[in-house]
Design a protein around this nucleic acid. Structure first.
Lengths: 211, 211
DNA sequence: ACCAATACCTACCAGGTGGTAGGCGGTGAA
DNA sequence: TTCACCGCCTACCACCTGGTAGGTATTGGT
């Protein structure tokens, strides 16, 4: 888990393109069968190279996993911060992020699967997720504390508890959403709407409480 | 995914005891490395038999998985219905269930990992989890509708949405709780307390809104 | 045009995978 | 005491796993 970022621009254009392709394929396959359940040969096959060819780009399976995780962070963070810079509030940007994720099933799936798998301390992504949850919870709590100071929080809401609840809700809804993809369209879980409903019980400036 | 229940009482006492032992070991190992990441030899080794010995009791790996899932259902449902029969409300029984689960890490872990893994349609536990979520959500919604009819629901709460939120919150908090086990005791997530705080915003008879 | 770095490839490895075949002693009802 | 069933074993199978060795063709800055 060291800086892959620094090494991202290395090599020829062809190689860089192939690395991107590999990461996309890995996202899809890790999502379907988890990290342990996916072989390098499967991933390599999906991008039309041999598995030692893949290992030329990512020296170990864990290094590939690292690249996958980093990929989502970069994408999500960029979109989220775009929203913020356009003057949208944190909760609104959060809802928009969830709405965008509902269009990228593999990304959602890979994170749901890996976050659960990596609860084991010796999983190669364990440290990553420990850090990620700590950061996400802290960011969310800080915004809630600011909202409280500005009187935008409903009375009795504890910022730290609400932060945990928001993150838990997003994670849990993702799983329900993934299962609901089996159902007909009208029966599918609307993650963004459900999150919004909860945020309305936390922030005073996120719509009326009445549905 | 057919009735293992019917076959549970078969064989000699020794065999039945060993099957129970195997299920316990499988719970622990599936929790650590997931279904795909755990080998039959590991499980067999943990209970002191060879892996064909294990396959004598459970003819395939998927059959063992099925037994593991069924095991939790039996245990959880029994405790929950005990609470209900002693006159406790559904939300209170839910909080007590979560509190009990905080003492059985492997059970929580195996469900968190498998529920995420099994979002893939071809996972051997996929149908099980589809059914389980449908049932759980329906049960929860029905209780919320009853509460609404009895005026025990806060205004503006949609029973179906609240049911999804409760289930999502429980799932999401479990993951956060598992990661928080790395942290010192006082920094650990209190799943039951956080769930209770949310239930207080849904039911009118679950304590004051002010923390 | 040169040439080092890059992008692959085939062949191979040791070790692990779920599952099968067939045996052998123990169990417990008749 | 018989005897069908049970618990579990060793040996084996074909196949898959991540990773290495060492080769060749391509790329692209000089």
């Amino acid at each position: 888990m060291t800086a892959t970022t620094a090494a991202a621009g290395r090599g020829y254009a062809k190689g860089r393109a192939k690395r991107e392709e590999i990461v996309q394929a890995a996202i899809g396959l890790f999502a379907e069968t988890g990290y342990h359940g996916t072989s390098l040969r499967e991933i390599a096959g999906r991008v039309g190279i041999s598995h030692p060819g893949l290992l030329h780009h990512f020296p170990t399976k864990a290094a590939l996993l690292e690249a996958v995780l980093e990929h989502r962070d970069v994408v999500d963070r960029a979109d989220f911060e775009d929203d913020r810079e356009q003057g949208r509030s944190v909760p609104e940007s959060l809802v928009r992020l969830v709405r965008r994720n509902a269009l990228r099933r593999p990304i959602v799936e890979v994170f749901a699967v890996l976050a659960a798998e990596a609860t084991s301390p010796d999983h190669p992504a364990h440290e990553y997720f420990v850090r990620r949850y700590a950061e996400t919870l802290a960011d969310s709590r800080i915004d809630l504390e600011r909202a409280a100071a500005e009187g935008r929080l409903r009375p009795g809401v504890d910022p730290a508890a609400a932060a945990r609840a928001i993150v838990a809700l997003m994670d849990g809804l993702q799983v329900q959403w993934l299962y609901s993809l089996d159902h007909p369209k009208e029966a599918r879980v609307d993650m963004a709407a459900d999150l919004e409903a909860y945020l309305a019980t936390v922030y005073t400036d996120r719509g009326d409480l009445r549905a």
